[in-house]
Computed example of a mutant assay.
Amino acid sequence: MADAPEVSILLLGDSDVGKSTFLSRISKGSDGHASTDAMKVLRDGDQPFVFEIKFYNRPYRFEFYDTASPQNWKMLSPKIIVLCYDISSRLSLINIQRFWSKEVKRTFSGAESSDGSDIPILLLGLKRDLRSETDLNGIIYPQEAYRIAQELRCDKYMECSAVTGELVREVFEDMCKSAAMSTTEKGGLSEGGCVVM
């Protein structure tokens, strides 16, 4: 797309929380209930994963970066950061609190988007399909994750399942809208604190 601003979106979180599966799902499309075998396999060497979309009657080129290795992302200049965790793994959410959010603050402290505001940070719960009533020990429910998102001063809390496609399109659109807003004078930060998608 001609004259489309390039907007970098950085997905961070532990290995195996579902970041690559999420990106594979959106590269395939979120309609239907296809198995993960039918999805295009995205590899780290293919990065950035590029999606060209039109929002607000303007074309955008969204470049998604997915990594669990701090050495790979500290040189990037993202417009938004998405902290990802596995809804069925309490440890992955604890690592968001104890490691990832601190690394983001340390790396991007004072970093600003093009309009001079702070970089929006979103919290994304993946593997929503694994939330079940039978295993209560490790499962994270939305109200707990939303509370943690507020404590971390995230702009939004979202969750989806890449395997079933549940809420994938909505999460993808919300991420892209936040990223598109980060290129405007208003910026991509939510007004009034953390919101739930």
Rank of each mutant, 00 (worst) to 15 (best):
G32R: 03
H33D: 12
K74Q: 13
L23Q: 00
S24W: 04
H33S: 14
K177C: 00
K74N: 11
S113M: 12
L189K: 13
L10Q: 04
Y65S: 02
R98M: 13
S161Y: 00
S101G: 04
L12C: 08
D14P: 07
S77I: 10
R25E: 02
I119L: 07
I26E: 04
S20N: 07
M197L: 15
A2R: 14
P70T: 09
Y60R: 03
S88Q: 12
A145L: 08
S15C: 11
P5R: 07
V104G: 03
K79T: 02
I94F: 06
G192S: 07
Q47H: 05
G192E: 08
L42W: 02
E170W: 01
D16Y: 04
R128S: 08
Q143L: 10
N72G: 03
P78K: 02
M181T: 04
T184P: 02
S8M: 13
R58T: 14
Y146R: 11
S182Y: 08
S30D: 14
D135R: 07
C84N: 03
L91E: 15
M197R: 15
T107S: 12
N95C: 05
V163D: 03
F62I: 01
Y56Q: 08
W73K: 00
Y65C: 01
M175K: 05
A34S: 15
S69Y: 12
G138Y: 07
A4R: 08
W73S: 00
E52V: 12
Y146F: 15
G188P: 02
Q97D: 12
Y65V: 02
Q71E: 14
C84D: 00
S69P: 00
K74A: 09
D66M: 05
I140M: 13
M175T: 06
S30T: 10
L122V: 15
R25I: 01
F99Q: 14
G188E: 02
F99S: 15
I87S: 13
M75S: 15
Y157W: 10
L91I: 12
L123K: 10
S35M: 11
V50M: 10
T164Y: 07
Y157P: 05
V41Y: 01
V104I: 13
F172L: 12
L42F: 03
S15W: 00
T134F: 13
R25F: 01
L167V: 08
M39W: 05
L83E: 01
A149I: 06
V104W: 03
T36V: 14
R58F: 09
V7G: 05
K102P: 00
G45N: 13
D14C: 09
K177L: 06
E159N: 09
I53E: 15
D3M: 13
I9H: 04
Q150N: 11
P59R: 06
A162V: 03
S15E: 13
V7P: 06
S117D: 03
T164A: 00
S109R: 14
G192N: 06
M39Q: 11
Q150G: 09
G29V: 05
G165R: 01
A145S: 10
F51L: 12
K156Q: 13
S101N: 11
S182T: 03
G192R: 08
F64G: 03
D135I: 12
Y141R: 11
G187Y: 04
V196I: 11
G116L: 10
V171T: 12
K105I: 02
Y60N: 03
S182H: 06
E112L: 15
T184V: 09
V163R: 14
I148V: 15
G165C: 05
G29Y: 05
D46P: 01
